[in-house]
Nucleic acid binder design. Structure first.
Lengths: 221, 221
DNA sequence: CCGCATCCGTTTCGATACTG
DNA sequence: CAGTATCGAAACGGATGCGG
């Protein structure tokens, strides 16, 4: 192939683009950031990605040292792919892209796949780095038929988004587009409540505070 | 057409990839981060990029609100492309990718184009965010037949890389691969001096300190 | 089933030539 | 200077097959 020489430029961005700039590659890395995955797991998540292209992408990522193959212990047979240390070094760039892309998320388009993991990544990327209100939220997000639960905790060191079920001051139940609308899409808490797009239990002012725990770049300048 | 719907996923990374994930697009943005550019300027910098693809990429970036066309004032006729506010919002992600890609820069490959601007971007991306030695360096970098001069200033708030000729405690003269080798490639100052790949004037210990002003992710975990 | 290789019709890219 | 037009080459998506 020698496609590693796609851009003959002594430039760091061109080098990065040669490794992760092809179609699907960043989305494969995204899935592996969520944990080790099998070939078929990746195919299932990435509709439209053909087996041959996935094979090629994984081979390139492995050759670049970002991904490692690991044989699964018995009784589960097979192979999983996982990020190496070098692969995880990509996370800052990936989160920076997630943060920028969050501003482009809305509207939810027809026939678009929705996964709780992906929303969690977006919320993590947009979590405030600076001081945010010291409040604790539980998010119940209905994505398709599944439900994802996230804990969002503000504090002087910034906002943290984690998985977990521990109780919180307030619980917000909504679908992904509503959550995104609240923090990035100009959906006012008042309007969301009126249209019953969100349900709040616990502290009554929680919904007003919630968006201030995040920081989203505005789209379409 | 309708390539705006390349990935049918409600995911921030997929949205970002739809806008800037195609071949050449990030490199076009890189050039525009350096300032407004004409169509022909971009073509000149991006060898291998055909006029038709550049036309399409610029149209898409403009449609996405990242880039604006501006008619040039007389007497210079023509059009320039420049980043909008929304386009500049991509800079954090671009610099994160630059930082990661810097670890992949070496070795300099045969027939590879070298531009001072690109090295400046890499050094800026790798400048330490945390406290770095309060020293001032002037870098004279020979890129092809041209010469680029950069000022590198350390301090408690981090390292700053700027353009400028003001005098400094020490001046380092070298080619881009040597500069990169010093901060990212395991080229020891001692070896660089011995092989006359770098020339130092001013403070004699400058070369030892210089690499500590930068922070490069190690490649190939 | 899982991980891939192969084949094939379609899309996208790259090089060159041409136009207002 | 700023693009269009054209055309062969490469990449991609979908289907199928095959060994473990």
């Amino acid at each position: 192939m020698a496609a590693g020489f796609r851009y003959p430029q002594f430039c760091a961005l061109a080098r990065a683009a040669e490794v992760v700039g092809e179609r699907w590659t960043l989305l494969i890395v995204r899935e592996l950031v969520l944990g080790p995955r099998r070939f078929s797991d990746l195919r299932e998540r990435l509709d439209g990605l053909s087996a041959s292209v996935l094979t090629e992408r994984l081979a390139r990522l492995e050759a670049g040292g970002l991904v490692a193959r690991r044989a699964l212990d018995r009784p589960a047979s097979g192979v999983v792919y996982e990020l190496t240390e070098a692969g995880r070094a990509l996370e800052p760039a990936l989160f920076a892209l997630l943060r920028w892309g969050t501003g482009l998320l809305l509207p939810l388009r027809p026939r678009e796949r929705v996964e709780g993991d992906w929303l969690r990544l977006a919320l993590t990327a947009c979590a405030r780095r600076g001081p945010s209100p010291a409040r604790t939220f539980l998010l119940r997000i209905r994505a398709g038929r599944a439900e994802v639960i996230l804990r969002v905790v503000g504090g002087p060191g910034g906002t943290a988004v984690t998985e977990g079920f521990e109780s919180a001051e307030a619980t917000l139940t909504a679908d992904p587009a509503t959550i995104l609308g609240l923090i990035a899409g100009g959906l006012s808490p008042r309007a969301a409540l009126r249209d019953r797009r969100v349900e709040v239990t616990g502290e009554t002012d929680a919904l007003e505070v919630f968006p201030t725990l995040f920081d989203v770049t505005e789209p379409r300048g």
